[in-house]
């Protein structure tokens, strides 16, 4: 496995995440995908973070930032070609030492996941009710009658009214909004302590998107389960998440409370992302055909391997040192951290 140079020094100056003692603590989490004949490309590079019980953490990043790899690592679902190192401590136990059967006891019961495409995450040949019951069956020894009642209860909890119809339906008979709720009810069935949601609103229109966010927030309040909400759209985190973790090229580049990060972003990447946000005020003066604000360039595989700051190639504020050295993490104020040499500018 690749040695992650430059990171171990910075770990000492790491800003302590708020909310400790954590529900989930990741230290030096590194994931590499080995591909035949080629040097393995790192997807996560020495990530540290803590999740406190009951909080909502937004993970913000574009494709290639490693946010989906992060989600899969937390559920132990990485493909066999992936090498994982570091530690991932959940309620005092290091998940990375778990074997498959120990993982099975955690997945769905203590840590659950909501997927991006609810239509695809349900079996097409099994009734929706049975699929929720399967989750309960995997983790609890109860009679099937009792289980059915529980499924109906959990369907009602996610705001579905026609419980009978939905219980008996197949996934292709449900609407997009219903599917999203069914997917959430599967995750909720065993009352997990942590739900990982990987872009659950990406394919939804505005109304359904808002509904889903409200539902997740309500779930979080009612059952006190922590939520990791992965997205590429900072607009969804405002008024929803407590904290935001900004990821770029497999690293955490900025972290802090949503309100403070959004008001005064420190990392140039965060600044750029927030400027992209469409807010209707800015259209008033816009003429037809005028360009939209952009964050120039794209995230490439080379950025992951760069010895310097991985954002340097796209950064407008870069200096000489950015190309040669990865910026150590600093904590400019309590509860915040950022990896940038020039964050103060």
């Amino acid at each position: 496995m690749r040695t992650v140079s430059g990171y171990s020094e910075s770990a000492t100056t790491r800003a302590q995440s708020p909310g400790a003692p954590g529900l989930l603590c990741a230290r030096e989490l590194t994931v590499c995908y080995a591909s035949r004949g080629e040097p393995s490309s790192p997807a996560l590079l020495g990530i540290d973070f803590d999740i406190a019980p009951g909080e909502i953490v937004g993970v913000l990043g574009e494709s290639g930032s490693g946010k989906s790899t992060l989600a899969l690592s937390i559920l132990g679902l990485l493909p066999e070609s992936a090498d994982i190192a570091g530690s991932l401590v959940f309620e005092g136990k290091d998940l990375l030492r778990f074997d498959e059967s120990a993982w099975r006891g955690i997945r769905g019961a203590r840590i659950a996941m909501v997927f991006q495409e609810p239509g695809l995450s349900l079996s097409p040949v099994m009734r929706v009710g049975s699929q929720i019951a399967e989750v309960l069956r995997a983790h609890r020894q109860e009679g099937s009658n009792h289980r059915k009642l529980q499924v109906e209860a959990v369907l009602a909890e996610v705001g579905l009214t026609q419980v009978d119809r939905i219980y008996k339906a197949y996934s292709h008979q449900l609407s997009g909004g219903e599917l999203q709720r069914v997917a959430l009810s599967q995750a909720l069935a065993c009352r997990p302590d942590l739900i990982v949601a990987d872009e659950p609103t990406r394919s939804l229109d505005g109304t359904r998107q808002k509904e889903m966010l409200d539902l997740l927030r309500e779930t979080n309040r009612k059952f006190g389960c922590a939520l990791i909400f992965i997205t590429h759209n900072p607009g969804l985190l405002a008024g929803f998440a407590d904290r935001v973790i900004v990821m770029y090229a497999g690293r955490i580049v900025e972290e802090g409370p949503v309100s403070r990060v959004f008001r005064r972003p420190l990392h140039p990447y965060t600044k750029g992302l927030l400027q992209l946000m469409p807010t209707s005020l800015q259209y008033a003066g816009r003429t037809r055909g005028q360009h939209l604000p952009v964050l120039p360039g794209t995230l490439t595989d080379d950025d992951h391997l760069s010895p310097g700051c991985s954002f340097a190639s796209r950064c407008s504020a870069r200096t000489q040192v950015c190309q040669t050295e990865f910026p150590a993490e600093v904590a400019p104020e309590k509860g915040r951290r950022v990896s940038c040499f020039n964050y103060e500018n």
Partner: peptide, 15 residues
Amino acid sequence: SVRLVESAFRAAQAG
């Protein structure tokens, strides 16, 4: 619903 999300974002940006 789009406006609601947008205004939450603007509120967060404005502190």
